[in-house]
Design a protein around this nucleic acid. Structure first.
Lengths: 224, 224
DNA sequence: AATAAGTAGTATGTATACAAAATACAGGAG
DNA sequence: CTCCTGTATTTTGTATACATACTACTTATT
């Protein structure tokens, strides 16, 4: 039969998505710096594709807030001022509170276990010095909560907001002094969820995000 | 899809943006119905442009949540289930609460005046029978609040969320019985903002959105 | 009659060609 | 020296061509 051949072809992704993911990664990792121009021809030759998928990927980055384009001038990696960061974190605070509240209502026993694993995993990661791994472990902890909201649109928006501050988060995670605080806050969130104490978990999450905001703002101020 | 779909070429804008706006309007107005396919060639010939700007516009609609594309199959106007609507309104409730709280902190005297004008304007519009005008007046009332948040990103997200339920909102606004309630709620919001009673205005706004949610859900249930 | 294979037609994915606008720079006028 | 301007170059905007996958219909086989 010809069945298996078709299965192999299923692994196929449109180039625009491959390009989109590649550029997004590069921006988040800081390989493409804020303000850097995204020139279609240059990117096309660098990635070995034509301009068409590049252009479509840029349109997508644009709506994700990772790129800004000026008509007839082109696109560049979005710059972030302190004000932009405040705006993003203000929204993120509201949505993280919503998410953790929903999670508190919905969490199953198995979710709590996953959360506990993620918690321990984060704690362990801070004993190493691999900042990316720490950031990843933190993402995974919060992801368990996001998934429990049973609201895909909300998950999507929270991931997007997280993306927008990722560059700066990695910076502040280099400061090892904050690890104990972060771990403690994660533990408190976990405890509240276990006890189904909705009001309290929202309060803790709120504090957790505000803390982040101050850290990130310090980073930005230093960079300027 | 036999409507005309004409482009407004007056503005000096890249065609992708013109096409994007045109298609978005058509979807919101219901000229393009949920589930309807968005075929590039067909749209291109109908709008008198090539496929390129159409494709880029579709990528943008996709990230706005107004279109869904399946690789190698094409795009279609996003369908909305009752669950999707719940999800959107859950988020909207959280962000509207945030917005009205911020507005309460920031509102200047002139903003209050603008809000009062919008309030009266809405009231007046309900005495006519032009549903679109009523919807527009409602949008303008809430826009004054959004603008006062001084958070462009939040404004953007709220506008996007509003877009996603616009089709159904216009439906429920056809029910004239609800006008007094809506007017009363708007008045309460205005009064609270005038008195700078932040806690209360958030409570009222929350109620306002929950009310909408129930109405919209009824509409969807009727349609199924 | 039902199903499978083959085939024509259609739609999307990608590349490239051409047009128009923006930018950079050189040279000349004041 | 500064500013303006014209031209060359670069870059984006748009259209089109070609390749490939999908759809639907027809035909053949059981």
């Amino acid at each position: 039969m010809t069945e298996k051949l078709e299965l192999n072809m299923n692994a196929y992704l449109p180039l625009r998505d491959v390009v989109f993911n590649t550029l997004r990664e590069a921006i988040l990792k800081g390989e493409l710096k804020p303000g850097e121009r995204l020139m279609e021809l240059q990117l096309a030759s660098k990635l070995g594709v034509s301009r068409t998928p590049i252009r479509e990927a840029i349109r997508m980055l644009e709506l994700e807030g990772l790129a800004v384009t000026v008509p007839r001038k082109g696109a560049e990696v979005a710059r972030m001022t302190e004000k932009d960061m405040e705006d993003v974190l203000q929204i993120r605070k509201a949505l993280d509170e919503l998410a953790v509240g929903l999670a508190c209502d919905n969490l199953k026993e198995e979710d709590l276990e996953k959360l506990h694993v993620a918690l321990k995993n984060f704690e362990a990661s801070t004993r190493g010095h691999d900042v990316k791994r720490i950031a990843q472990a933190d993402v995974e902890f919060h992801d368990v909560i996001y998934q429990a909201t049973d609201n895909p649109k909300l998950v999507n928006m929270l991931n997007n907001l997280r993306e927008q501050i990722y560059r700066y988060r990695v910076e502040y995670l280099k400061n090892e002094d904050i690890y104990p605080t972060l771990i403690h806050e994660h533990e408190k969130i976990f405890d509240c969820l276990k006890r189904k104490d909705k009001d309290e978990v929202i309060r803790v999450m709120s504090y957790h995000v505000v803390n982040q905001e101050m850290m990130v703002k310090n980073i930005i101020r230093e960079q300027e």
